[in-house]
Nucleic acid binder design. Structure first.
Lengths: 232, 232
DNA sequence: CTGTCTAAGAGGCTAGTCCAGTGAGCCAGT
DNA sequence: ACTGGCTCACTGGACTAGCCTCTTAGACAG
C-alpha cells in the first residue's frame, strides 16, 4: 500500500525497524494500561529492552509524536498524549485497512459537503479549473483511456473550490485510499462515460451556485461509482 | 498548541531540530518545483547542506514519511510521494491554523454523519457508553464545573457507536482543534445546561435508532455550540 | 545482443560521547 | 518554619564514526 507504482504494483519494501518499534510501543502502551499523561520508560531503558540503538528508537518516537500518540519533553520523558483510543484506532486501521465500505462512507460524507460548499463559494477561477478537469477527462475517454487523471483533477478542483483548508486536509488524508477505489470503478465497461455525465451534472449545479443540487448530484455520483464494491 | 496544561497554559517547548528540518525540506521541495516521483538529495548530501547530522536528518525524514510527503527507499533515496499539494496544505494549515469557522464546518460535517451512523449501528454497549457520558456531564455541571470531560466523553461515545474506523480517524485528526472550540463554548453562562439538553436529544434519537433525527439533532447541537464564534 | 558480475553510492543501524533541560533534595539565610 | 539558591542525578537532544545491506548502472564475458 505504501508505494504504489504506475500499474498498481507494489514494490516489495523491507520492513523498517522504526516501524516495528512503533507497533511494539503501541502494544506496550495498550498492554500496560497506560493513561494519558503517563510517562514511557526512559529512552536508554526502552532502547535496551527493545534491543535497538537510541538513534533508532528516537526515530520511532518521532513517528509516534507525528501520529499524535506521545509528546516528548526534554528532561522529563515521553508522555502519553490525548486519549489512548487514538493509538488503537491507528493500530486497528493499519491492520485491516482498505475496508472499502468505510472508505466510501468517509468519502461520501466529505465530498457531498465539499460539493455543496463549492457551489456556494466558487470563484470564476474555480469554475475554470472544474471545466478544465472535465475537458481532460473527456479527452482521455475518447482516447480509450479510463479517465482516471481527469477524474482525480475533477475532485481536486471541487475540493479547491470549497475553500476549506481543514476539509481539504481531511480529504488529503484519505486520498490514497480513494484513489484505489476510483481506479477499480473506472475499470468497468461503460463506467467512465457514466461517471463523466454525473461529473457534468455536479459541475452544472456548482456553476448555478445551487448548493443543495450540488450535494445531491455528488451523492448520486458516489453511489454510482461505489456500487462496484457491493458486488464482491 | 502542542501541550496544553491544565489551565490552558502552554508549556514553553524548546524547538526540536527535526521539526525545523521538516519545514526547511518542505520549503525546499516547493522552491525547486519538485514533482511526485522525484528524488530528494542523498542523505549525506542533504545533512551537510542543512548543517545537521545524518541521525537528525533521519528523524526529519521519518516525520515526512509519516506525514505522507515522501517515501524513503533503501538503496535508492527519498522519493516525493503523491501530489505535492499535500505538502502545501499541511504547511499552510500549520501556519494559520485554528481557523475556527473551518473547524466548525469540518466538525459539523463529520459529526452529523457519525450521529446518523450511530443511530443505525449502535449496540447496547454503545448506548451504555453514551448514557454514562451523559451522567458524567450531568454530575460535572451539578458540581459547578463546565462539563468538558463529559462533553468529550459523549462525542467519543458517538464516534465509537458509528463503527467507522476511517471516520473515527478523521475525527481524531481534528480532535485537538475541536477541544479548544468546545472549551470556549462551555465557558459561557447557561451553556453547559443547554448543551446537555441537546446531548440528551441526540442520545434519544440514537436510542430509537432514528438516523435522520440523530443527524438533525447533532446539527442543531453544533449550531448551538458554535454560535459563540460568530460573536467575535 | 544477452546475461552476469562488480563496484559505487544509497539508506539502515549501531555505539559512544557530549550537551542541555528538569526536578528532587539539601542547606544556608531570613 | 519558610524561602531561596545550589547541586546532582536523570532525561532527552544531537553529533560522530563506522559498518552493514540494498540498488543500480556499467563493464565484461558469452
Amino acid at each position: 500500500m505504501e508505494k504504489t507504482a504506475r500499474l498498481g504494483l507494489e514494490r516489495v519494501t523491507r520492513p523498517r525497524l522504526y516501524e516495528q518499534l512503533v507497533e511494539q510501543i503501541l502494544a506496550y502502551i495498550e498492554s500496560t494500561q497506560m493513561r494519558p499523561g503517563d510517562l514511557l520508560p526512559a529512552e536508554r531503558d526502552l532502547a535496551e529492552r527493545l534491543g535497538v540503538s537510541r538513534a533508532t528508537l528516537a526515530q520511532a518516537l518521532v513517528a509516534l509524536e507525528v501520529l499524535g500518540v506521545i509528546d516528548v519533553q526534554h528532561g522529563t520523558g515521553a508522555v502519553l498524549a490525548r486519549r489512548p483510543s487514538v493509538a488503537s484506532v491507528i493500530k486497528g486501521l493499519r491492520e485491516h485497512r482498505s475496508r472499502l465500505p468505510e472508505i466510501v462512507e468517509a468519502r461520501s460524507t466529505l465530498e457531498v459537503k465539499l460539493a455543496a460548499l463549492a457551489a456556494a463559494r466558487r470563484t470564476d477561477e474555480d469554475l475554470a479549473a472544474i471545466d478544465h478537469a472535465l475537458d481532460v477527462m473527456s479527452r482521455e475517454i475518447n482516447d480509450g483511456d479510463r479517465g482516471t487523471h481527469g477524474d482525480e483533477l475533477f475532485h481536486q478542483a471541487i475540493t479547491g473550490a470549497a475553500h476549506s483548508g481543514v476539509l481539504a486536509q481531511l480529504m488529503a488524508f484519505i486520498a490514497e485510499m480513494i484513489l484505489e477505489t476510483r481506479m477499480e470503478s473506472l475499470g468497468q465497461p461503460g463506467r467512465p462515460e457514466q461517471s463523466l455525465a454525473s461529473h457534468r451534472k455536479i459541475a452544472d449545479a456548482i456553476r448555478a451556485q445551487d448548493s443543495e443540487a450540488a450535494g445531491e448530484a455528488m451523492l448520486a455520483h458516489i453511489e454510482l461509482v461505489s456500487d462496484v464494491e457491493l458486488l464482491r
